[in-house]
Design a protein around this nucleic acid. Sequence first.
DNA 1: TGATTACCCTACCAAGAACATAGACTAATA
DNA 2: TATTAGTCTATGTTCTTGGTAGGGTAATCA
Lengths: 136, 136
Amino acid sequence: MLSKRSQYALKALGYLAFKFEQGPILISEISEKKKIPLKFLEGILLELKLAGILESKKGKGGGYYLAKHPGKVKVATVIRLVNGPIAMLPCVSLYFYQRCENCNEKKCALHDMMIEVRDATLNIVEKRTLIDLMES
Amino acid sequence: MLSKRSQYALKALGYLAFKFEQGPILISEISEKKKIPLKFLEGILLELKLAGILESKKGKGGGYYLAKHPGKVKVATVIRLVNGPIAMLPCVSLYFYQRCENCNEKKCALHDMMIEVRDATLNIVEKRTLIDLMES
DNA sequence: TGATTACCCTACCAAGAACATAGACTAATA
DNA sequence: TATTAGTCTATGTTCTTGGTAGGGTAATCA
């Protein structure tokens, strides 16, 4: 399962994609529209900014906005950033790989099955961008 | 990601499938062969027994063994039992469904994408059984 | 200058994950 | 009948997640 944090991140980004090139959007507006606890959202947006997905402006007329075109931000990237591995096991993760101590990967049946699951998932989330999440 | 507990459960069941119809297998044997902390494994096997996947025999010559043919136990069933939902979001889960408060499912873009991911995953784990995990 | 807003702390709480430890109970067998 | 091999049960620790609450600083605009 995705953490609440990731779910909120995707929802917020979907909203910011919808409001793309309409100037900075208030945290409070996103919080209300997407029903996300404000203080929690604050931290999430900051993380997305530090990762280069969002930019922000302080002061009156300030807020958050997408750093690039929504079509350039893949869903997979967001999930990996906020949630971590997409794979079901560390030993089949591309970006968060960790060796299994209790099996040798060459002939681990579980390993092979989980690679299939991973690829099936990646096939979807690597192709989708924030455009596919755009929503009021 | 699958929890350690689920990973261990699948490994243990793979071993018990391999030893199918060879009498009760010691927890300690599974623990050694599959490198699973013994006491942790005890709890996992007990859970699998209570769910009807395993049976056990106490006392000398005792141990755990599969309650049914390994081909009858789906990987999906084990994951749902030990790990919980297979879907990435509660609002797209078949067995652990929970409504989203912050979107209406009819037109939630995230919802639709996650249904796709779920189906791609189910397409694999619903078709595989303990036979596919059989291993020494 | 003053209001607005992002940014950045600290502290707290409750629940679950991933173990580890200790011991109680049960059944076969020598 | 006593021993031993084995399951079963309960508790405790440490870490992460998902929050709540509050305060303070810095940038920006009118």
